[in-house]
Design a protein around this nucleic acid. Structure first.
Length: 485
RNA sequence: GGCCCGUUCGUCUAGCGGUUAGGACACCGCCCUCUCAAGGCGGAGAUCACGGGUUCGAAUCCCGUACGGGCUACCA
């Protein structure tokens, strides 16, 4: 049988880091086994679900490079792929369970249930439904329904079934005592399906073979198994992965900073880095390999190597990884990726980049090994696009230092006569320390501050080349004026 | 309360009865060097949550405890 897995986000918000990881594992599992990765939008929470959120989720999945075989905008033979459009399938499923005697109507009101629950919980022990309506006389049941009395439909958990054992692909064999199982509600008074009923019917009718999800659903699994069995459906294989925590050991939330995939995209993270990091957070290839591409992930992914324990989200490691991917990018790709960030900063348009592509290509390697995210690029290249302002403290510390002015004058002089290429610039400037008696470090720092306005910049000679002779000399003259007046 | 899951350096993890407990991020030092990075080399960092077993031998198997998490809704 061919593998079919699904990712079923609820469009009540953007794609969350945790959801993204679940999607990645499902996707990798499907691709590894040559199966189908299905996307279903569980939008039954009408209050909070929005089309904007759905669109954002699709965008984020695509950004990560997770393509789905069936689902919104892809179609498929098992649709519809929006849960709100599948309500028609719950009714026949319920009929099927009724026919088997696996579902029964319950007329108990929410209030009486509440008081009963409190009472039994006070005594300690099982707090589930006491099955009052399970053994109602069939004729009275028929009469009450005919009279239009409000009721829900409950599952009749079999007494003779024995414990429910789940062979979880991540956690191994997990046993749930059957007598702790509640005759939970399948269909509400208003006729709508509850989560545990709806997902089972959806997953069953969509022919899912494996359910890979967060372990917050582990405790729901035995309930769902009961429904599968009552339906006469084949029970899929389950795999429950642990959650992602923040540094404080609490479930990851907004308090811990950016939690949506979109936010990481906007901060200048690369999709391949986010994918790699997320894949590694809770899964290991061999314990040694930390950097791997999409193809390797697909080839090597194995649920048995998914961690059972929760993982703490570590933004620093993600940044390191992103930096690593940036450094490995081709110069061309770096320029392309950098362009929108330059546009956003108002430094250059895509047309500017195209017009002077060679110049940007020589800029790229200077920047790529100095940033961990693309939102740092603008700051690093600013000196090339706008006139620097030298801070007082820097002026005092560097430009007014003994010999600095002398070095600047000498530098300006030699630079004026030279071809403006890094090698020539370097050769010329190397003569300055000896000629002036100023230490190389001090001389170069003075020139750096004059040219870039700061003490930290990309390599000096290359930076000057990019700046060009005219601007370099003008800035040096301006710096000299600053300290000599 | 009941049921279920988890616990190896600060963090992510390897380990699946015999290892000097390995790797990665972060941290520290050295090298490189015009600053910052990047890179190279090295270092520190884990009584494997705790307590009992089983075994010649346990991070690895079993039981218990503690702590953390989940479920226990006419939420998903």
């Amino acid at each position: 049988m061919t593998v079919r897995v699904r990712f079923a986000p609820s469009p009540t918000g953007h794609l969350h880091i945790g959801g993204a990881r679940t999607a990645i594992y499902n996707w990798a599992f499907a691709r590894h086994h040559g199966g189908a990765f299905v996307l279903r939008i569980d939008d039954t929470d009408l209050e909070r679900s929005t089309d904007e959120n759905t669109a954002a989720i699709l965008r984020s999945l695509r950004w990560l490079g997770l393509d789905w075989d069936e689902g919104p905008e892809a179609g498929g033979d098992f649709g519809p792929y929006y849960q709100t459009q599948r309500t028609g399938t719950y009714e026949p499923a319920l009929e099927r369970m009724k026919a088997n005697g696996h579902a029964y109507p319950c007329f108990c009101t929410a209030e009486t249930l509440e008081t009963k629950r409190e009472a039994s919980r006070a005594e300690g022990g099982f707090s589930g439904y006491d099955r009052t309506c399970r053994n109602l006389d069939p004729s009275t049941v028929a009469a009450r329904i005919a009279a239009g009395e409000p009721h829900v439909w409950r599952v009749a958990v079999p007494d003779d079934r024995g414990d429910i054992v789940i062979d979880d692909l991540v956690r191994g064999e997990t046993r749930f005592p059957i007598d702790a199982m509640d005759d939970f509600i399948l269909v509400r008074t208003d006729g709508s399906a509850t989560y545990n009923f709806a997902t089972v019917v959806d997953d069953w009718t969509m022919a899912m073979t494996h359910i890979i999800r967060g372990d917050d659903h582990l405790s729901n699994t035995p309930r769902q198994v009961v429904v599968y069995e009552a339906l006469g459906a084949e029970v899929p294989t389950f795999a429950h992965m642990s959650m992602i925590f923040g540094a404080d050991g609490k479930r990851l939330s907004k308090r811990h900073g950016a939690t949506s995939v979109e936010a990481y995209a906007e901060e200048g993270f690369l999709p391949e880095a986010v994918l790699n990091y997320l894949a590694l957070l809770g899964w290991s290839l061999d314990g040694e390999t930390t950097l791997f591409d999409r193809e390797t992930l697909v080839r090597e992914f194995d649920l048995s190597r998914v961690s059972k324990s929760p993982a703490v989200w570590d933004p620093e490691k993600l940044e390191w990884m992103n930096g690593s991917y940036i450094r490995e990018m081709s110069t061309d790709k770096f320029v392309d990726t950098m362009t929108p960030w330059l546009e956003r900063a108002g430094f250059a348009t895509a047309a500017d980049v195209a017009a002077r592509r060679d110049w940007f290509l020589s800029l790229a390697p200077l920047i790529s090994e100095r940033v961990k995210r693309f939102d740092e690029v603008a700051d690093k290249v600013a000196f090339l696009f706008e006139e620097p302002t030298i801070e007082d403290s820097v002026r005092v510390k560097i430009l007014e230092k003994d010999g600095a002015a002398r070095a600047l004058e000498a530098a300006a002089e030699v630079l004026a006569t030279v071809e403006f290429h890094a090698e020539e610039i370097e050769a010329a400037l190397r003569t300055v320390p000896e000629a002036t008696g100023v230490k190389p470090k001090d001389a170069f720092q003075a020139i750096r501050v004059a040219a870039t306005g700061t003490t930290v910049s990309p390599p000096l000679f290359e930076s000057l080349e990019l700046l060009g002779k005219e601007r370099t000399l003008a800035r040096m003259a301006a710096a000299l004026e600053l300290v000599t007046t």
